[in-house]
Design a protein around this nucleic acid. Sequence first.
DNA 1: ATTAAATGTTTTGTGCGCTAATTAATTGAG
DNA 2: CTCAATTAATTAGCGCACAAAACATTTAAT
Lengths: 147, 147
Amino acid sequence: MKPKLSDNLCFAIYSASNAITRAYRPLLEQFDLTYSQYLVLQSLWLEDGVSLKSLSEQVMLDPGSLTPVVKRLEAKGMLSRRISEQDERRKVIALTESGRALKQQACQLKSQLEAKAGIESAQLDQLRDQCWMVVERLNRAGNEGDA
Amino acid sequence: MKPKLSDNLCFAIYSASNAITRAYRPLLEQFDLTYSQYLVLQSLWLEDGVSLKSLSEQVMLDPGSLTPVVKRLEAKGMLSRRISEQDERRKVIALTESGRALKQQACQLKSQLEAKAGIESAQLDQLRDQCWMVVERLNRAGNEGDA
DNA sequence: ATTAAATGTTTTGTGCGCTAATTAATTGAG
DNA sequence: CTCAATTAATTAGCGCACAAAACATTTAAT
């Protein structure tokens, strides 16, 4: 059998990720959000008032990647960034009233996308768990140089 | 049970994709390649001398995303972009000798990454296929407005 | 044959995502 | 207490990934 590009797991995951953000785009447009911004909001809906570093661990992105995302959300009035009083290096990122209010409107987004894709939850959970397994192993492998 | 951010399949796939390009980066560095550039090369190793549009379909990326990637590969001497004689709108993208030669050196990359992550092929194939299922359904859903 | 629609590529502008370097605040070792 | 490490956040620079617009070439319709 001739090898195909789609044989590669990396390409499959990469394409799936691109397809998801592509599919989310028109849905998120009504809220003037990108997928990354939406992800940050979801994280804050679960745990509010965290530092940028803590947030970056939650969403598994570099602090350097997150600063501009959070700034844009601040500009849209979704959250505030005030300096922590305990530790002035830290910024405390907290939802505003509008940011909190968006939670109710946006919770339909996930089911909207699932409906769009027509995925049922049976294999879905397995797929999700296997993705996390890949993430965990790659992260572990990347941090093995800690003497 | 309290809901967690990691319950979301979208987040899992998104994180897995980021983790993969992150893990590939140091491996690809020795070849002075990014993951996208590597993907384009892999596509050309399977089918050489294609138009940008054809290439964009192979790797599932916008032509607009691909133009700069291909240009950089051209600058590195990996491929050539000449105007098609049959249709002067088209560009024919073809590997150079160096581009073809890289195939031998880079074929170890995939196994190198798999070793790094310690993934065995049993569940791997399933994960891959389910990713493609998601991609297919999202793409189908996105193109349903064709009267 | 002329012109209108379609096709292939590039350009422009926005927003990631990463690394490396910078700045500022805190901690710790002497 | 002081000064060197550490930690938190930002900045700068690179390379995507996309949509929308611009441009040129080809095709199709009349």
